[in-house]
Design a binder for these strands. Structure first.
Length: 284
DNA sequence: CCTGCCGCCTGCGCGC
DNA sequence: TGCGCGCAGGCGGCAG
């Protein structure tokens, strides 16, 4: 499940493999992969051929490849999307959605996505910041992410803390896994009413999210010696760095209390019932 | 305007 | 063995 560290790992891989190369052909193998390109697959492709990739950028879980035309290839990996660099002779595989060939006949860029929640589009004039993601707030690792601004927005909300953390228009890059991990590090409960957050609470929360993401990034960013642009959440840090996510009944690394799994927002939330006590006035 | 819920997808693992 | 179901979950759209 790609969240910010995984997407950033992919972006770094792409920076090595595609910047400076010119697109020769683009094949859309599955229409759903370009559904966000409203003008259709043919239009998506037409504006890419002959264009040179000049950079790689990311905000939150979105990444984009600015082109020399001023447009950009905008990508979201969804639940299961991968951007892979593969030799032309590599087999297509059942989940191949879009493939890019370059005019140097070098490794191809392939968008592979089992569950098809992800997708690509061509963002018109989106090289600097695609207008399609104007509603996405700066992510937790950006300089543009102002902690005071986030705190003020949080206090104006009337909802639970985890819901707010997952709202990409408030702060971006955080998904279910890093939300749970960040809340655990900050010793905060997911149902804490956002309007009751004090500045030190917000500081702890942001510290928690940033630190867990930083260590994930450290451990995810080690495998660029092959053509494979790592997006697979199962590899590397996934098992080692997580304190609570997916660890029901295992001891809390801090206090030993068995981790709880609770259903919240129709998904799993993992927490330590001792370190993260339920607030007196929870906001579900 | 704000909040919260639904639908979109596929593969895996479990219980009967 | 096989079938059905729950689960994984990000996000756009929309209802209230």
């Amino acid at each position: 499940m790609p969240e910010l560290p995984e997407v950033e790992t992919v972006r770094r891989g792409l920076a090595q493999w595609v910047v400076g190369r010119t697109i020769r052909t683009v094949d859309v193998h599955h229409q759903r992969a370009v559904r966000r390109h409203l003008a259709g697959a043919a239009d998506f492709t037409a504006g890419l051929i002959g264009r040179r990739v000049v950079d790689t950028r990311r905000r939150g879980k979105y990444l984009w490849l600015p082109l020399d035309s001023g447009d950009a290839v905008l990508a979201h990996l969804g639940m299961s999307g991968q951007l892979l660099m593969l030799d032309a002779t590599a087999p297509a595989g059942p989940h191949l959605r879009v493939s890019f060939r370059f005019d140097d006949d070098g490794p191809q860029l392939r968008f592979v996505d089992q569950r098809t929640f992800g997708g690509l589009s061509r963002s018109i004039g989106g090289a600097v910041l695609p207008p399609e993601i104007a509603h996405i707030a700066p992510d937790v690792l950006e300089d543009a992410c102002d902690d005071d601004v986030f705190h003020a927005k949080l206090r104006r909300r009337h909802t639970g803390l985890k819901r707010a953390l997952l709202d990409q228009s408030l702060i971006s890059g955080v998904g279910n896994i890093y939300a749970d991990e960040g809340l655990w590090r900050a010793k905060l409960h997911y149902a804490r009413a956002t309007e009751t957050m004090r500045r030190p609470d917000t500081t702890r929360l942001l510290d928690g999210v940033r630190s867990v993401m930083a260590s994930a990034l450290d451990q995810g960013g080690t495998s660029f010696d092959s053509l494979y642009v790592n997006v697979n959440g199962e590899s590397g840090y996934f098992d080692r760095s997580l304190a609570v996510y997916g660890r029901r009944d295992e001891p809390c690394p801090r206090c030993g209390t068995p981790i709880h799994r609770e259903s919240f927002m129709n998904r799993s939330s993992y927490l330590c019932p001792h370190c993260q006590p339920r607030p007196r006035n929870p906001h579900w």
